[in-house]
């Protein structure tokens, strides 16, 4: 009886998961249609795009901070590298007329640059652990900002302008779905299990034969790659970047989104980025006092719900389950596998 109940429940999930392609295609066409139809004004569209970018940022940081249980605070640094790389590419390298065509390439290149730097940072920094990793990544973020301020041909402290507004709703949608897809599949892959085992107990997972060094580096590089992607999108949405866009406050913003939504949860990252971005906009009439209230809320959240809203839990859609259709299919003896399970 119980089994049947569980089973119908699981079947319900499976049915709703079959809706996923429909939702994705529908969402994509909606993102195409929204700017053309006059349903929502451009301000709302802008907020939606910011949510998308923030989802990429928080999901990628969640990989290191939530799933792996390390504490990286330099995410904005990787974002800066992606933003500057992509902007320099679209403004000075790619032919001016065809910047739109090359835009995905530029964003991907920004991600790749951030990933490469992530590799360089990862090797020395994972010799240390815990608090010291926080310090290394913090120092890294400061160094990136300081280096950019000293490079004159990208504008130094004044910032870099000249990008066209190439980030559109469909692009944000595509990149967001892509990054969530990659991160979700990584987390539930063999490597992903390794990442979780590092969070639970690094020494034990080392003893079980998990190559923790390699897995840490992989997770860190992928995380910084997507930070770079988000940076590229951000730069071409704002059309103006300067080193101060990517300082420690930006990193703190991303941290807040991750810990608000919940660590170790992709659904949490989506929720956290959405709630935080919308809340900041809703509270905008309060002026500076909203920046007084936001951290207070964060402190209260940490006290009463230290793992965040979705902490360590997940929307069922993202969790790979048993292949339910396979369970339903009767085998040669005419019995379905679930009957066998029921004994």
């Amino acid at each position: 009886m119980e089994l049947k109940k569980i089973h119908s429940h699981l079947a319900g999930i499976a049915a709703s998961r079959r809706m996923l392609p429909v939702l994705l295609v529908g969402g994509f066409f909606l993102s195409l249609a929204l700017p053309r139809l006059d349903w929502v004004d451009s301000y709302v569209q802008l907020i939606i795009m910011y949510i998308g970018i923030n989802v990429i940022l928080s999901a990628s940081l969640n990989l290191v901070n939530g799933y792996m249980g390390e504490f990286s605070v330099g995410h904005a640094g990787f974002m800066a590298i992606g933003a500057y790389t992509a902007s320099v590419l679209t403004v000075s390298v790619f032919p001016p007329g065809a910047a739109g065509l090359f835009f995905p390439l530029a964003v991907a290149a920004g991600g790749a640059a951030a990933g490469a730097v992530g590799l360089v940072v990862a090797f020395p920094s994972f010799k240390t652990r815990g608090d010291y990793l926080a310090i290394v990544t913090l120092a890294f973020g400061m160094i990136v900002k300081s280096i950019i301020e000293n490079i004159e041909w990208v504008g130094g402290p004044r910032g870099f302008i000249g990008m066209e507004k190439l980030t559109t709703l469909p692009w944000v949608f595509v990149w967001t779905v892509f990054s969530l897809w990659v991160i979700r599949n990584l987390v539930y892959s063999r490597y992903g299990r390794g990442i979780l085992s590092i969070r639970e107990d690094e020494i034990a997972s080392d003893l079980m034969g998990v190559n923790t060094r390699e897995i840490k580096v992989i997770a860190f590089v992928i995380s910084s790659f997507f930070a770079g992607i988000a940076g590229g999108l951000f730069a071409h949405l704002l059309q103006f970047i300067n080193p101060r866009c990517f300082d420690i406050l930006k990193s703190t913003d991303i941290l807040i989104m991750v810990y608000l939504g919940g660590i170790g949860s992709i659904g949490g990252s989506i929720l956290g980025a959405g709630i935080y971005t919308v809340l900041l906009e809703v509270l905008r009439p309060m002026g500076i006092w909203r920046m007084v209230i936001m951290p207070l809320m964060l402190v209260l959240l940490m006290i009463y719900r230290p793992y965040g809203i979705m902490g360590l839990r997940e929307f069922r859609w993202f969790v790979p389950g048993v292949d339910l259709e396979g369970l339903h299919r009767p085998d040669k003896k005419g019995k379905s596998k679930t009957d066998a399970l029921a004994g």
Binding site: L249, T252, L255, I256, Y259, M291, M294, P295, L296, L298, V299, M302, I303
Partner: peptide, 8 residues
């Protein structure tokens, strides 16, 4: 995180 929040 709480400490960061208090700082902000």
């Amino acid at each position: 995180i709480t400490a960061l929040g208090v700082g902000i």
